[in-house]
Simulated assay, not measured.
Amino acid sequence: MSAGSPKRKSVFQGNVRMCMTWSGDTFFFIVVHIYDMSKRGRESGLHRKSILQFLGMLYLVCLILKAGSGREAEEADGAITTGVEKPKIAITFDDGPHPVWTPKLLEGLKEREVLATFFLIGSNIDGNETVVKEMYENGHIVGNHTFHHVEMTKLSDEKAMEEIRMTNEKISAITGEPVSFMRPPFGAWQKGLEKGMQVLPVNWSVDTLDWTTKNADEIVNKVVTEVKENDIILMHDCYESSVNAALRIVDILKESGYEFVTVEELILP
């Protein structure tokens, strides 16, 4: 270059590159000043290629730090979501135990890690003691549904208490525990019996009417469209269609975020 020619400014002269990223609670500022290569390059021994390589490395570090901070935020959000309590519901079964369909239901509930409440007819227990024992050992609540499936309000207090007492004795002989819950057939209950028999009557809020149809799809649709938090679902474990529908209902509602609990957990403080 001749002495009279104007000086050419390096394209890098005076440029500033800043990379900013967030990691935890700290800001990292990386500021790189690149001076005129024609002047500084000879003094420092740096060349344009070396500086470009250095800048590339700094840029890569920024990207790594940014990605790490994003993962931390996602993990924090996940922890909050996990801590949200699920809405609870109870599924209950009347009129068992059945020698075929109750064991199938128990197997399906165990596979799904779901607890239920069973209200047994006393006259159905003989010959099905192993089914009742499995029911109890799996953690389900075993309740009373009278001995002969009779409407309690049509009986004298003495006869009504006998229906409860006979069934309680059958159940307790298998479980070794007193019976605490009672579902009166047809939902008909004589006030005051709970004090004399020390049982808590339990009705329902969603009636599947599964005993009126063998169409499992119809039963499933009725429940999943009506159910809400704290509902008690009434079903029967003495019909194949009801058992098949019940397991499908469990799958659908668990996927929807519901947690199945026993009536004891749902209604007692």
Rank of each mutant, 00 (worst) to 15 (best):
residue 9 K to M: 06
residue 12 F to T: 03
residue 25 D to L: 08
residue 26 T to A: 05
residue 41 G to N: 02
residue 41 G to E: 02
residue 43 E to W: 11
residue 45 G to D: 03
residue 45 G to V: 01
residue 49 K to N: 05
residue 49 K to C: 01
residue 62 C to W: 15
residue 66 K to W: 09
residue 69 S to V: 01
residue 74 E to M: 10
residue 80 I to T: 13
residue 82 T to P: 00
residue 84 V to P: 12
residue 86 K to I: 11
residue 88 K to E: 10
residue 90 A to S: 15
residue 92 T to Y: 10
residue 95 D to A: 04
residue 96 G to W: 01
residue 96 G to T: 00
residue 97 P to D: 02
residue 104 K to A: 01
residue 104 K to L: 05
residue 106 L to T: 00
residue 114 V to R: 03
residue 121 I to V: 11
residue 137 E to R: 15
residue 137 E to L: 09
residue 145 H to K: 10
residue 145 H to P: 03
residue 149 H to I: 01
residue 153 T to C: 02
residue 155 L to E: 02
residue 156 S to E: 03
residue 157 D to Q: 11
residue 157 D to E: 09
residue 165 R to Q: 03
residue 179 V to S: 04
residue 180 S to Y: 15
residue 187 G to A: 04
residue 188 A to N: 15
residue 190 Q to P: 00
residue 196 G to V: 06
residue 200 L to G: 00
residue 200 L to R: 15
residue 206 V to I: 14
residue 218 E to W: 07
residue 219 I to L: 00
residue 221 N to C: 01
residue 221 N to M: 04
residue 222 K to W: 10
residue 222 K to R: 13
residue 228 K to N: 07
residue 231 D to H: 12
residue 238 C to L: 09
residue 249 I to R: 09
residue 251 D to F: 12
residue 255 E to M: 14
residue 256 S to D: 06
residue 257 G to S: 09
residue 264 E to I: 09
residue 267 I to D: 01
residue 268 L to H: 14
